[in-house]
Amino acid sequence: MNALPERLAIVVVRDGALPAGADETAAEAGGAVLLTGTGTARAAKELTAARATWTVESAQVTPGSLAATLAPLLDDVRVVLLPASPDGRDLAPRLAFDTGRPLHAGAVRCGTDTADLSRVDDALELRVRFTGPVIVTLAPGVRGVGHPIPAPEPAELRVAPVEVLDAEQVEVRAPEPETVELTEARRILGGGAGLVRPGEDGAAVLRTLTEVAAWLGASAGATRVVTDAGWAGHDRQIGTTGVVVDPDLYVAFGISGATQHTGGLGRPEHVVSINTDPHCPMTAMADLGIIADAPEVLRELDRRRRDA
């Protein structure tokens, strides 16, 4: 068996599909990643930040059994990192219990001796220092992965699965658009300061944006100005100080396109800008620029939603 390194990312795979944050977590662990679940060999080919890859294939994804199977492999691993994806959040506390380690959830950065955790609605960072081996979950969309590197050939770890009393999977449902994490959203409607007129209730306007987005099968995001004003939660903030997204479609309502915001957009396939300024950076980068009053466009969409 190949010796596992001091820092290791563990990523749960379903049917060969990597979860959000897989490459970020691999990069934070120095490129060392262990894939577990179903279709791990196929998923290994999709990693862009891995320098060394191990796989532990299982018949199905059950967090209790996976934790009991993986725990004996981690004796020499000081820091175990998991993406804070749904499966990562399920596996992490079970791994912590089976290995007798503390769990630090919601990290935005993690080294060998410390982790920075996001707290109080993502508006506060708390640094913790490790005194021994730990389990850490990394929030997706908070760091880049650098330039892609060729996927290494994975080393298969052959271990006997450990059967334990576990939750039975009945069905896996797609998340509702209004609650899905922005890092996983394929369509996003973003709201900026230009969406809220002076004297208006900004929180109510952003609620309307969320409802219209859900009607269109999309999620709602926001700029830093909007989240700093308290009109939307910081988990909805897109940008270099928020989350990094990579949707198929991004529709910007009243967003000028500051570098801090556009730096978190990834590479959307299509960008639509709704703004009264035809020369703003967001309209310049858009595939379609609609020169119109963003609040009025949102009101018209909301009217059509209500009449539908």
Rank of each mutant, 00 (worst) to 15 (best):
T114E: 14
T114M: 12
T114D: 14
T114N: 13
A115N: 02
A115Y: 09
A115W: 05
A115T: 03
A115G: 04
A115C: 07
D116R: 15
D116M: 13
L117E: 01
L117Y: 07
L117M: 01
L117G: 06
L117K: 05
L117C: 00
L117A: 04
L117H: 01
L117R: 10
S118Q: 07
S118G: 05
S118I: 07
S118K: 03
R119T: 13
R119D: 09
R119P: 07
R119Q: 13
R119W: 11
V120E: 15
V120D: 15
V120Q: 14
V120T: 14
V120L: 15
D121E: 14
D121S: 15
D121M: 11
D122E: 11
D122M: 08
D122A: 10
D122G: 10
D122F: 10
A123H: 12
A123N: 12
A123M: 13
A123F: 11
A123Y: 08
A123T: 15
A123V: 11
A123Q: 13
L124A: 08
L124V: 08
L124R: 02
L124H: 04
E125W: 12
E125V: 15
E125D: 11
E125R: 15
E125L: 15
L126P: 04
L126V: 15
L126W: 12
L126D: 10
L126Q: 14
L126S: 12
L126T: 13
L126Y: 14
L126R: 13
L126A: 14
R127W: 14
R127S: 15
R127P: 13
R127V: 15
V128D: 11
V128R: 05
V128Y: 09
V128N: 08
V128Q: 06
R129I: 00
R129Y: 06
R129E: 01
R129M: 01
R129S: 07
R129D: 03
R129L: 00
F130G: 07
F130R: 07
T131I: 04
T131Q: 03
T131S: 05
T131R: 06
T131E: 09
G132R: 00
G132H: 00
G132S: 05
G132V: 01
G132A: 03
P133K: 01
P133A: 00
P133V: 10
V134M: 01
V134C: 04
V134R: 02
V134Q: 05
V134T: 01
V134A: 03
I135W: 00
I135C: 03
I135S: 00
V136W: 09
V136R: 05
V136N: 07
V136M: 10
T137C: 06
T137A: 04
T137G: 01
T137S: 07
T137D: 03
T137K: 05
T137Q: 03
L138N: 08
L138D: 11
L138I: 13
L138S: 09
L138R: 09
A139Y: 02
A139S: 08
A139P: 03
A139G: 04
A139N: 04
P140Y: 06
P140K: 01
P140N: 06
G141N: 04
G141A: 06
G141M: 08
R143E: 12
R143I: 14
R143L: 07
R143P: 05
R143F: 05
R143S: 09
R143M: 12
G144R: 01
G144D: 09
